[in-house]
Design a protein around this nucleic acid. Structure first.
Lengths: 191, 191
DNA sequence: GCAAGGATTGAACCACCATTCAATCCTTCG
DNA sequence: CGAAGGATTGAATGGTGGTTCAATCCTTGC
């Protein structure tokens, strides 16, 4: 019984995520999510107090997955330059693979309460990057700089550079390598 | 009479802008805008077919003003490095001066139709910057690079670096100079 | 001065959807 | 097996706020 409950909860989150990936946040009415999850509209409210609350969790889940993937890829590298390249590479590849979801997570207009979760998401990337930058500065690989600011700015750069292509639908490998070059310059990686 | 008409129209746009600057897009119900403009709710629809349409124009107007201010400041400079510094300086100073408006223009959740206008705004900045970058590359001041991508990424970096401070309320001159340093590195300005 | 035609008004309308809740269905435990 | 209690249902509710429109008011041209 308790299992059935958590299963329902999971199914609702999964359904919301699936609809976001297919039709964006705009397509996510509570009724649609419930139908896809195979429960009644009202049942959603047994698991989540409000729609915003549900989607806060959906965003958190999806974002964590993304940040984890990026962190995992970057952790394999040993220099700040390579770590940053891995971040860009992973982030971009994944975004281009699920453009609708990426757009929803990054830029689509959403409920303000859900928007707050987005800030957390972006900050998580920034923290991750800031760590690499700080280490790079400490080791002398990178010039002295405000690691937090660099990281924040890079997150913005990455997102902005992606949103266009996401809409347009195309961004080849050359865009990705150009982005990596940009990142290296911004970090002050010596050529 | 025709004068009265255009005057009304202007007043409506001005009222919308004023409310945005004070309470953000969220505070901009058609009724509130109409009241502030000194017209009846229904009259708004004599000038604009829909609310989204009205705000598209409001965004366009406000954005143009911002881009113009930045372009004017940058035009006084002669090297890409100085031009970019002027862009950052002007953009930041103005954003910090009207944080609520800046937030609305840059990041606040809005109607999708209005959101589209935001892309135009960001692209306008990007084009402006891309011009300076391309010139810098041509003159040999900057290393070879994809000027469009650099410009887009810098716009994202600038916006992202500002949104946090906008919410927090504070970003001193040291943030601005750090941002300029970031920009110079990203452009490949030789130290 | 006076119709005619357009501008203005603002209260009423309506669509949309998140949220609720009384009725119903299961699961569980004595 | 059979009640008790919680889970589930989905149609009804309600609030919000954009949009409309019949009535009224001005302006304009004769």
């Amino acid at each position: 019984m308790k299992a059935r409950l958590t299963a329902s909860r999971e199914r609702i989150i999964a359904a919301a995520l699936a609809i976001m990936a297919a039709h964006g946040y705009a397509g996510c009415s509570v009724a649609a999510v419930a139908e896809r999850a195979g429960v009644a509209t009202g049942s959603v409210y047994r698991h989540f107090p409000t729609k915003a609350n549900l989607f806060a969790e959906v965003f958190r889940t999806a974002s964590q997955r993304e940040v984890d993937a990026v962190a995992r890829a970057a952790a394999l590298e040993t220099s700040a330059a390579k770590q940053m390249a891995a971040v860009v590479e992973t982030f971009s590849r994944r975004a281009l693979q699920s453009p609708r979801l990426a757009y929803a997570l990054l830029a689509e207009p959403v409920d303000p309460a859900v928007d707050a979760e987005r800030l957390v998401f972006r900050r998580a990337y920034a923290e991750l990057i800031a760590g690499y930058v700080a280490a790079g500065v400490a080791s002398g690989e990178l010039p002295s700089q405000d690691a937090e600011l660099t990281a924040t700015a890079l997150v913005g750069a990455l997102a902005e550079a992606m949103v266009g292509p996401l809409a347009a639908g195309v961004a080849g490998p050359e865009t990705i390598s150009a982005l990596i070059a940009f990142n290296h310059r911004a970090l002050g990686v010596s050529p």
